[in-house]
Design a protein around this nucleic acid. Sequence first.
DNA 1: GTATTTGTGGGGAAATGTGGGGAATATTCC
DNA 2: GGAATATTCCCCACATTTCCCCACAAATAC
Lengths: 148, 148
Amino acid sequence: MAGLKGQATYAVDAKGRAAIPAKMRATLAPEDNNTFTVTRGFETCIFAYPLNTWRQMEREIGALSGYDREARTFTRLFMMWAEEVSLDGQGRIVLPKQLVSYAGIKDRVLILGAYDHIEIWAPESFSEYLAAQESDYETLAARVMGGQ
Amino acid sequence: MAGLKGQATYAVDAKGRAAIPAKMRATLAPEDNNTFTVTRGFETCIFAYPLNTWRQMEREIGALSGYDREARTFTRLFMMWAEEVSLDGQGRIVLPKQLVSYAGIKDRVLILGAYDHIEIWAPESFSEYLAAQESDYETLAARVMGGQ
DNA sequence: GTATTTGTGGGGAAATGTGGGGAATATTCC
DNA sequence: GGAATATTCCCCACATTTCCCCACAAATAC
C-alpha cells in the first residue's frame, strides 16, 4: 500500500458521520474492504487503521504477555477504544461517540494521512498541539531522521 | 479469531443479567458455541473467556506442576472461581453472584474487549483503576511496545 | 458549459438492548 | 415425603439506536 497522506477538514453531521477524503480512499487496498479500525490515538486524536494494518497491530498486541501488569494495562487501553467502522455508500464513517468525546470533536474534523494510518483531530486541538511543540520543523527533522 | 475490542456500559437487571455487546458476539467463532467461561479477573474485574480460549487456558494450567506450592495455589484460585455461562436468546449472560460481589458490581457494568477475553467491570472500579495508573497512555505504549 | 465525482442531509427498515411473564427445575421447610 | 418457595431458563414485547439507501448540492474535470 502506498502511504496515506494529505489533509482536509470535513463536517461532522448530526449522526456523527464524517467523510474520508477521496484521495485517501483511493489509497486503500481491495483487501482493506473499505474498512478501518478506529481507536484512541496518541496526543488527543483518533487513529484510523486500514484493515490490513490493523491486523498487524493485533498481532503485536497478541504477542504480549497476559501475566505482565503493564502489558495488560496497555492491551486494555488499546483494545477497549477500538471499533471497526466501514465506509458507507458515500465514503463516510460514523465516528464512535466515545472517541469523539475523547478527541474533543464538535462539528468539524481535520483528517490527515500519516503513512500507515489516518488521524482525525478536532481542528482546534491540532492547532494547540502544533503550538506546543518546542522544536521547529527543521530541528525535529534533524533529530528524528539523523541529520546530525 | 479477530481480537475482542470495544467498550460499552450496560444495565444489570433484577435477575443479574447483562448484555454482551453485539460487536463482541460477532467476533466469536462458531465453535465457541455462544459460551464463555467467567472467572475472577486481574485487577478487580471479571474475565470472560470464549470457549476456545478457555480450553487454551486450561491447557496452560494443566501444564503446571502439582508438586509446586505456588502453582498449586494459583491453580486453586484460578479454577475455583470459574463458571461456564451461555448467552440467552437476547445475547445476555447471567453474572455469577460471587463474581458480581468480587467485582463490586451493582446495577451497571462496563464491558470491554481485551484481545483474547472480555472484561466486566463496575464502572466506578474501572475509573479508580485508571486514576491509579502512574504512566499516561503514550508513555505506557512506548514502554510496552518499545518506542524507546 | 456540460458531465462526473465528491461531500452533505435525511427517511425507512432492521438490529440491538431492556424488561418481564411463565414453565420447568431445584431448594427449603414442616 | 410432600407442599411451599425460590431459582433458572426460555420466550415474547417494546423502545431505541444503528444501518443502508436515496436525493441533492457543491466542486472538479473535460
